[in-house]
Amino acid sequence: MNDMFIFNEIIGHLGLLELPIKGRSYTWSNMQDSPLLEQLDWFFTSVDWISDYPMTEVIP
């Protein structure tokens, strides 16, 4: 079993939800003329948290 599969299994087992980053879809760039843009940071929360704080945002 690879690490990403195990990670995804744990996320699903815990019932976590991903919080999207507001305003962009990446968190890293190599700053080149033709840049590589990657999402290296991920934010997860619980259904209970979203119920209590529905306006929760991740801002870069």
Rank of each mutant, 00 (worst) to 15 (best):
residue 2 N to T: 15
residue 2 N to W: 14
residue 3 D to M: 12
residue 4 M to K: 15
residue 4 M to D: 15
residue 5 F to G: 12
residue 6 I to L: 13
residue 6 I to M: 12
residue 9 E to T: 11
residue 9 E to W: 11
residue 9 E to M: 10
residue 9 E to G: 13
residue 9 E to Y: 09
residue 10 I to T: 12
residue 11 I to F: 12
residue 11 I to M: 11
residue 13 H to G: 13
residue 14 L to V: 12
residue 15 G to Q: 06
residue 15 G to S: 07
residue 16 L to I: 06
residue 17 L to D: 14
residue 17 L to I: 15
residue 18 E to I: 13
residue 20 P to K: 09
residue 21 I to A: 07
residue 22 K to W: 13
residue 24 R to D: 04
residue 24 R to A: 05
residue 24 R to H: 08
residue 25 S to A: 10
residue 25 S to Q: 10
residue 26 Y to D: 03
residue 26 Y to M: 04
residue 27 T to M: 06
residue 27 T to F: 03
residue 27 T to W: 05
residue 28 W to H: 02
residue 28 W to I: 00
residue 28 W to K: 00
residue 28 W to F: 03
residue 29 S to T: 02
residue 29 S to R: 00
residue 30 N to F: 00
residue 30 N to L: 01
residue 31 M to Y: 07
residue 31 M to C: 08
residue 31 M to S: 07
residue 31 M to D: 08
residue 33 D to E: 07
residue 33 D to Q: 08
residue 34 S to T: 04
residue 34 S to H: 06
residue 35 P to S: 02
residue 35 P to H: 01
residue 35 P to W: 01
residue 37 L to E: 01
residue 38 E to K: 07
residue 38 E to S: 09
residue 40 L to H: 03
residue 41 D to R: 02
residue 44 F to P: 00
residue 44 F to R: 00
residue 45 T to I: 05
residue 45 T to L: 02
residue 46 S to D: 04
residue 47 V to S: 12
residue 47 V to N: 09
residue 48 D to W: 11
residue 49 W to L: 05
residue 49 W to G: 03
residue 49 W to V: 06
residue 50 I to K: 09
residue 50 I to W: 09
residue 51 S to I: 12
residue 51 S to E: 13
residue 51 S to V: 13
residue 52 D to G: 13
residue 52 D to A: 14
residue 52 D to C: 13
residue 55 M to R: 15
residue 56 T to H: 10
residue 58 V to Q: 04
residue 58 V to D: 05
residue 58 V to M: 07
residue 58 V to S: 07
residue 60 P to Q: 15
residue 60 P to W: 09
residue 60 P to Y: 13
